[in-house]
Design a protein around this nucleic acid. Structure first.
Length: 671
DNA sequence: CGGTCTATAATTTTT
DNA sequence: TTATAGACCG
């Protein structure tokens, strides 16, 4: 328990920490110590005798919540720290819903559907709803439905009820309810519904959480704002932290207006601007400041830093994307060699994932370790989803999506025809497939063999359901024996092409079972709680090309880079069409593209090199490019423009040649 | 059923 | 170029 010291903070930060009562808007520019302020403020509240359990800090990602909790633990009594609620919006909603969702006509053992589950259901509904000649892209439907829900709509808006999409939307919502399942959007939607329409529930939570903090407030959407408003309504102790200039998630529903018009939602707030930056050189900050001031509609901020000067930002013209990659990798190698930088001090930032490919190739060529952020999710793995589906079925038998996933995996004689019959029956009876399976009227339709299969499956589920729900049940052991009994692992290995694949999938399953053990140690929320956490922790894993050691040069999109910092940053593709992206012009979201560039620039601590290409491979063919219009908004006083030709004829090339030589030598030595 | 072929489209991504 | 989805065939 190190305690926290007010005098370690700058005056603005102190003001933010000390404003404990009433609405508070903390405009925290990039690198101004935002997390530090939130945690210090929490610690201060506790020191001022606010009950830790009445403090709620909401974030967007689990990573942010974890980080904050970790920091708080170092600032205050760990026992107190543990009582503070620090979680994501979605986790908070799960908490509210598990307590009172029955008031909305769902059962408390509801399942949470991730995007994959959601897709499955939507596809099924489209097939069932669409006429012969009608087509609807399930992915598009999913996105539109999600958008609608995040606007707070629970059914198609009036005037378009007749479209196929609207029909799918209504049926989707109805079906979810029958299945006693909610998707990620529902978590917010239903939690808001609950608080809005059930005063006693609202009051309960208002009383519980008397001090609210919201991180990354610029990323909140309509529902999230409503949720915050509802919770804060009684006490008005709501502190939000954010930076409108870093609002880059408008495309998925974030409303910058939430932070821009904070005063209309929470009148007379204290407002604190954090502008002292502890991350970057002034050259970098001035470049960022100069760029972002071209945005209309923003809270004016000017980042500054005590560290004077620093190298100029480089804006480099490259003949093509190949040369761009070559140059960047060369530079990284040179700096690593001559400046004693570590590989993880470098980051390469880009607008689109496709841009990472060439960089990857070049890094590999020189055996430079790297990590590419934004791989496939752990949950895209069939075997993980399968086991979770088993678990989910046992806790909520009405969960059709999970049930259908495992009903014949491994094969147990539930033929597609039988399953189809059950699905049809359930659709007619407006019940879940599980209920259909239990109906004598349904079983009567089946031939002897299928009937036996159905009976045996029902016994299996029934048996495990009972065992799992027994008080004091050793749930991890029961789940293990379920996996064992159905012969899942054998079947898994059988269906893998290579033994390696089989082994890796098996490992995934075992790892998951193990993490359930661990979950049991630290929580008493049981299998339900474990499933919730698994569903709400779908962070993508980085695809570790360099196994064992988790570090190296970071390759990352501008979006994913928000919140991170690196000593040396390379920002690729400052081209019209890439940044700003072509699509954004049609959509009229140039401002957001500018913010994206702003986010990129402000990731850099020591040096920043921005490149653009005169031509680039696009979809397999070479196409000419123009420098981005944003380049005109970069301050010439702090930005140096060069072309690759100019660089090669200067001393840099000497060094680069030497470093390349060094690298080759190192490579040989390693072999 | 499963594998292969062809058409098509092509930001950003967490929960 | 490359990923993916759907069609088609063995």
């Amino acid at each position: 328990m190190a305690g926290f010291r007010l005098f370690d903070l700058n005056p603005e930060q102190q003001k933010a920490v000390l404003s404990t009562e009433g609405p508070l808007l903390i405009l925290a520019g990039a690198g101004t110590g935002k997390t530090r302020v939130i945690t210090a403020r929490t610690a201060y509240l506790i020191a001022e005798k606010v009950a830790p359990s009445s403090i709620l800090a909401v974030t967007f990602t689990n990573k942010a919540a974890d980080e904050m909790r970790e920091r708080l633990r170092s600032m205050t009594d760990p026992f107190d720290a543990k009582q503070v609620t620090m979680c994501t919006f979605h986790a908070l909603c799960v908490r509210l819903l598990r307590a009172d969702i029955d008031k909305l006509g769902y059962k408390k053992n509801f399942s949470i559907y991730d995007e994959g589950d959601q897709m499955g259901l939507i596809k099924k509904i489209i097939v069932r709803t669409a006429a012969q000649d009608e087509k609807l892209d399930p992915n598009l439907a999913k996105n539109l439905i999600s958008k609608a829900k995040n606007n707070g709509w629970r059914e198609p808006s009036p005037g378009e009820e007749k479209t196929l999409l609207a029909a799918v939307f209504s049926r989707y919502q109805a079906e979810l309810k029958t299945l006693n399942a909610v998707d990620f959007d529902d978590l917010l939607l239903l939690a808001v519904d609950l608080l809005e329409n059930h005063p006693e529930v609202r009051e309960k939570w208002q009383e519980r959480y008397r001090y609210l903090m919201v991180d990354e407030f610029q990323d909140t959407n309509k529902l999230q704002l409503r949720l915050v408003t509802l919770l804060a309504d009684a006490n008005k102790n709501v502190a939000v932290v954010g930076d409108d200039d870093q609002s880059i998630y408008g495309w998925r529903g974030a409303e910058v207006s939430n932070i821009l018009e904070f005063e209309t939602h929470f009148p007379n707030p204290a407002v604190v601007k954090l502008e002292q930056n502890y991350r970057s050189t002034n050259a970098i900050l001035q470049t960022a400041n100069r760029l972002i001031r071209n945005n209309p509609r923003r809270r004016v901020k000017n980042l500054w830093s005590q560290s004077e000067g620093g190298e100029k930002v480089q804006l480099l013209a490259m003949p093509d994307d190949r040369k761009e990659a070559e140059f960047v990798v060369d530079e990284i190698q040179r700096r690593q060699n001559t400046e004693g930088a570590k590989w993880d001090d470098f980051a390469v930032l880009f607008r689109m994932n496709a841009q990472s490919r060439l960089i990857e190739q070049h890094l590999r060529q020189f055996r430079i370790p790297y990590r590419l952020i934004g791989g496939k999710s752990f949950f895209d793995r069939r075997e993980v989803k399968d086991v979770l589906a088993y678990a989910s079925c046992m806790l909520n038998t009405d969960d059709d999506v999970s049930l259908l996933r495992i009903i014949n995996t491994p094969a147990r004689g539930m033929s597609p025809a039988t399953v189809e019959l059950a699905v049809e029956f359930s659709a007619k009876a407006k019940c879940s497939v599980w209920k259909a399976l239990g109906e004598p009227a349904f079983r009567a339709q089946l031939a002897g063999r299928s009937r036996t299969a159905v009976e045996r499956f029902c016994e299996l589920v029934d048996g495990y359901e009972t065992r799992l729900l027994q008080p004091l049940a050793d749930q991890p052991a029961i789940l293990r024996s379920l996996v064992e009994e159905v012969g899942y692992l054998e079947d898994l290995k059988r269906t893998c092409k290579t033994p390696e694949e089989g082994l890796s999938r098996e490992t995934n399953v075992r790892e998951m079972l193990k993490s359930f053990d661990e979950f049991g140690q630290r929580s008493n929320a049981g299998l339900r709680g474990f499933l919730d956490e698994m569903m709400l922790r779908q962070e993508r894993e980085e695809d570790d090309s360099d196994k064992s050691k988790g570090t190296g040069v970071t390759l990352i999109t501008l979006h994913a880079a928000k919140g991170l910092e690196f000593p040396y940053v390379y920002l690729l593709g400052l081209e019209e069409g890439v940044l700003p992206h072509d699509r954004s012009k049609m959509e009229g979201t140039i401002d957001e593209e500018r913010r994206l560039l702003y986010v990129g620039i402000t990731r850099a601590m020591r040096t920043l090199s921005i490149t653009w290409c005169q031509s680039r491979m696009k979809y397999g063919s070479v196409s000419p490019c123009n420098i981005s219009s944003f380049s005109d908004e970069l301050d010439p006083e702090f930005v140096e423009r060069k072309s690759l030709g100019q660089l090669e004829s200067s001393e840099v090339s000497l060094e680069s040649a030497r470093s390349r030589f060094d690298a080759i030598r190192a490579m040989l030595a390693r072999k």
